[in-house]
Design a protein around this nucleic acid. Structure first.
Lengths: 333, 333
DNA sequence: TACCCTTGCACAAACGATTGTGCAAATCTA
DNA sequence: TAGATTTGCACAATCGTTTGTGCAAGGGTA
């Protein structure tokens, strides 16, 4: 049953019913009695305005898209959960798309999604997300917010970590514990996130008067396979490192796997700091020292940002940068 | 730019443009030349039919809802990813809702979602999901498919694991390895999933002429906290078990946490079999022996089922039941 | 009684598509 | 050349809302 049938039943016009239901009764001088009558009947018959009709009229449907590289990654699933929660509270729904950490797929998905009518888009770009693509999004017919990764030349609003500081934090922790020969398992080197984290690591090393051994900087991607390969390369060096930093959440899986293969004890043979807190971080042996991103906060900020842009109010900040915290456990000797 | 502006530019009617774009040109005798002209212009101006307009007309929008108890749980995020992929290939999009493993929230979300116009809904109910709620869904204005949990009295189509067999599998494995005093960390005892798995465990025990010690059957919920509490109860028994089965993916987190606290060595002091394969299952020490659900297959079946129901073709089977596999590693002595 | 102001609602035009049908012009048949 | 057929497209209704405006009835004032 739709509101026009409801109107028939009440011997009213659709107009009046619509106004009563949308709370605009007062504005349009629908009598209180009538409003109540409509409300009661609507309740009784479980009638609510069809969002499609309304959406068509208003030009908005109350939907925002959420593009993530891998919903299976706990960082992104945490993000998704919090974003969905915030948006649902505001009466909006989330359209999920998983880009499989693949540039090509991302383009495809974006084309798919650009054809649908969204009110906004929250995008967590894949590592090698092309700037060209994001350029195109700058002139999308709806607001776009980027999370997790930064592209300096892109003017779209972003919410992200202070990755350089986080990198310093990780390296600084290892240095403070006396480690000198530090390895670094990177993700995609073309991503600004990875670069910034790496810059942070380098900065901390330099400050300590040290240099990263290029042979100990490995890794090229955010998949688990890439993590394994990078870890292999690092741990097969003749002069093994005494500590390793995983610059992303997937990498640590590779490190653990390869370390186990090679029978390396953590932290006796190898200290480890891993980016991204995961549900199991505290449960492996030894519990992992991690760099934790404030996932919920990132999600909240992103959700608020997109809402502000949708409703047209000028957001206070264009780029929101949040700080990571070090969660110290037992993986650093 | 929409198709009526396109029509203006080409000096055609919206009708013709619509038919050309939708591939119905032949059927309605639009000349090939005209069709091509429309196609070219559409390409040039990046015009595609607005899904809202089309949706309103057709009564379908190409969207299916996906309700999961916890997208952060790797079982559900895996499910979400695969479902989204299958549906996207068919031109549909997925609306994600997280019910936070909370019955109350689930009702709320369902009300929220029932007001939007969906073509279908894939529901992974929370543990205590009330039958009343599902009853209501039986008469929803769109098809509904249930995954992961079974409700015998509900006629909605389902895709799920053969949970009883999976329970037998887990217990059988422990029994075959000589374990006799077996504990069981349950999830929500009111959920049919949990009951079926538990029945399987009991059956295997009985077949071996044994009985579960009621004191070793603990746990009441799918949250991590519930897992910890249950594990506490199990591992604090004066007469400790020599093996424990976690009947759900969260529970194992509790077991590992409590075992570490109590300094119990796995598998020397305690053997463990955990339901649900997780990205880190192989990486903890010792690597976990798990009961793996065929997540991708479940997702695929559910997606196909909902598509069939949406398009009106009668699905072959009403209830699809899949088998789990035991992934043997090192957590069973 | 004549006039004006308020109250309470309905009319009708959008929003952007799809689809059955109608109507000319072009082509064919006799 | 007249009539029948086919070809190619446009008209108009429809999906379910929202919203600016119009219009009648009721009440008050002079």
């Amino acid at each position: 049953m739709n509101i026009s049938e409801l109107a028939d039943e009440l011997n009213l016009s659709v107009t009046t019913v619509s106004r009563a239901l949308s709370g605009q009764g007062e504005k349009y001088r629908v009598s209180k009695a009538t409003v109540q009558r409509v409300l009661d009947a609507a309740e009784k018959h479980h009638v609510a305005p069809d969002p499609l009709g309304a959406g068509l009229q208003r030009g908005k449907l109350g939907m925002v898209g959420l593009l993530v590289p891998d919903i299976t990654n706990s960082f992104f699933s945490g993000l998704a959960r919090s974003i969905e929660l915030v948006l649902r509270k505001r009466g909006m729904t989330v359209q999920l798309c998983d880009t499989a950490e693949d540039e090509h797929c991302e383009v495809e998905v974006l084309e798919h999604i650009l054809k649908r009518r969204l009110d906004g888009l929250i995008l967590a770009p894949v590592g090698k997300s092309s700037e060209r693509l994001l350029r195109a999004l700058e002139s999308a017919p709806f607001p776009v917010v980027i999370v997790d990764r930064i592209f300096p030349e892109i003017t779209l609003p972003t919410v992200s970590l202070d990755n350089e500081a986080a990198g310093r934090l990780a390296a600084g922790h290892l240095l403070a514990h006396g480690h000198r020969r530090i390895a670094c398992l990177r993700g995609d080197r073309e991503s600004h996130t990875d670069r910034a984290r790496f810059r942070g690591v380098q900065a901390a090393m330099q400050q300590a008067g040290l240099q990263l051994d290029p042979a100990l900087v490995q890794g090229a991607g955010y998949t688990r396979a890439a993590g394994v390969e990078g870890a292999q390369n690092i741990l097969s060096q003749p002069h093994r490192p005494d500590a390793v930093i995983s610059l992303n959440g997937q990498g640590i899986l590779g490190i653990l796997e390869v370390a186990a293969e090679k029978n390396l004890q953590i932290p006796a043979d190898l200290s480890v700091v891993a980016f991204d807190e995961q549900p199991w971080s505290a449960l492996v042996k030894p519990p992992l020292t991690t760099i934790e991103q404030p996932v919920e906060l990132i999600a909240k900020k992103a959700a608020e940002l997109i809402c502000e842009k949708i409703s047209g109010t000028k957001p206070k900040q264009r780029h929101i940068v949040l700080q990571a915290v070090l969660r110290e456990r037992k993986s650093v000797a």
